[in-house]
Design a protein around this nucleic acid. Structure first.
Lengths: 240, 240
DNA sequence: AAATTGTTGTTTGTAAACAACAATAGACCA
DNA sequence: TGGTCTATTGTTGTTTACAAACAACAATTT
């Protein structure tokens, strides 16, 4: 009998289309593939050394996530963003996060709260130098993902995952271009999120809603100002 | 040059996977395929006379819509519903419709309003006999879809489409089993929706929100009572 | 008798070839 | 010169064939 590969057992459970999806998503979020760029199935298949099947599946998933735009018989492109997109995304986010924190107040377990606090600790331990745009964005979204998880609401969580990818895609970009604005908003990050954990733990639903609304609106204010100035004349995301 | 097919020109632009998706969705919504039923790609491909490719794509789409549940190497099943699902769906619906009517107050055009009134007219013209569960459900969801369209918010609309499929799937069923409850809720349908059009036209945002919240809650009340009694011990929808 | 191992059948995952479609460039004609 | 029609090319949609993973059951061993 042949020896089983040790330690890699878990990795083998991932299927090609998963790998392709994650690699592509990373490439888009990190702007290795710039917005608007054409993605041909053949070309990408050749480049990644797989057939078109997994590529097709990955592209369709990313289309659902809003990171890629597919048009019939015309192919796929990396999605590009304008200020309308920002307005849509943040209005959705407000509505969803209010619902999330409401359900979290009712359903959060102690381990849910612990998970959120763990992320805050990780952030606080970062040195000034370590607070790179990429890292701050990642932790921010990880915290909010933990919040949505605490709501124990499957459909809400899935909807958030789609939105998260889109937010991530331009958040890394805006943070990296911020400069002095960072100095104003960054110090607020820790305290702001700490309040979330408290109101959930005390089940203060109304206060929780207000808190989360304010937080998202400030986030929009930061992103929107910056975004409109820098990336205005991009083409609208087309849908099928 | 060959003659172009008349009237069916639009249909010819549809691609196989679209046809399969729509046919399958209809079959699920109408309960031709009962909840929990196993769907094998091969079997369905044979039955519909197409290859597995379009079938795979259709199943993946319906998985995303929540009408089908896919597990790797185990196959796809028609989704089944329990009262937790109902709670999730209607809480999502409340959040989304409030956002929708808010944006509709700001963005609705006269033709958007006209479209909504058109649906109301169609309903009012129906005779007692014509008010079948299937028809009422269809018109109800069509009206709300028009509302979401009037919001002019692409992401919100796409999210609604997913939710709509799920609502449709059990709405047809509950209406068909209602009996005397119909007599109480049906007469309310017309007036209730007429108010929507008015508040949007007058841009009464706050009143609009209250109206829509009340409407959705009444809908939940009707469905939930009925659903819990009839279909309680179904298995939870599993996600990958 | 219980647990382990091997075998078989079913179902999905992947690859590669073929067909259909859309965009583009060039030929032809007015 | 301008426009339209046609042929070409590149891309996606679909099919077919094969490989790998999984689940269930039977045989075997302890």
């Amino acid at each position: 009998m042949a020896l089983k590969p040790l330690g890699l057992g878990l990795a083998s459970r991932r299927v090609l289309s998963d790998v392709v999806t994650d690699d592509l998503r990373d490439a888009i979020i990190s702007h290795d593939l710039e917005p608007g760029r054409r993605i041909a199935e053949d070309e990408l298949a050749l480049q990644m050394g797989v057939s078109r099947g997994p590529i097709r599946e990955a592209l369709m998933r990313l289309d659902r996530e809003g990171l890629v735009t597919i048009e019939r018989h015309k192919g796929a492109r990396v999605a590009s963003w304008n200020d309308t997109d920002i307005q849509e995304i943040y209005s959705m986010r407000s509505a969803l996060e209010v619902l999330a924190i409401e359900w979290a107040c009712k359903n959060a377990t102690t381990s849910d709260l612990k998970a959120m606090e763990e992320i805050l600790n990780t952030y606080n331990k970062l040195s000034e130098k370590q607070r790179t745009p990429r890292e701050v964005s990642r932790l921010d979204l990880e915290f909010h993902t933990a919040l949505f998880a605490a709501a124990h609401h499957d459909r809400l969580f899935k909807t958030w995952e789609v939105l998260r990818s889109q937010i991530h895609a331009f958040l890394v970009y805006t943070w990296s271009q911020d400069g002095k604005i960072n100095k104003v908003f960054l110090p607020q990050w820790g305290p702001d999120h700490k309040v979330f954990v408290e109101v959930i733990r005390n089940k203060q639903i109304e206060k929780a809603k207000e808190t989360v609304l304010g937080h998202v609106e400030r986030g929009l204010a930061r992103v929107a100002t910056h975004f409109i100035e820098e990336v205005k004349p991009k083409k609208k995301v087309a849908k099928r």
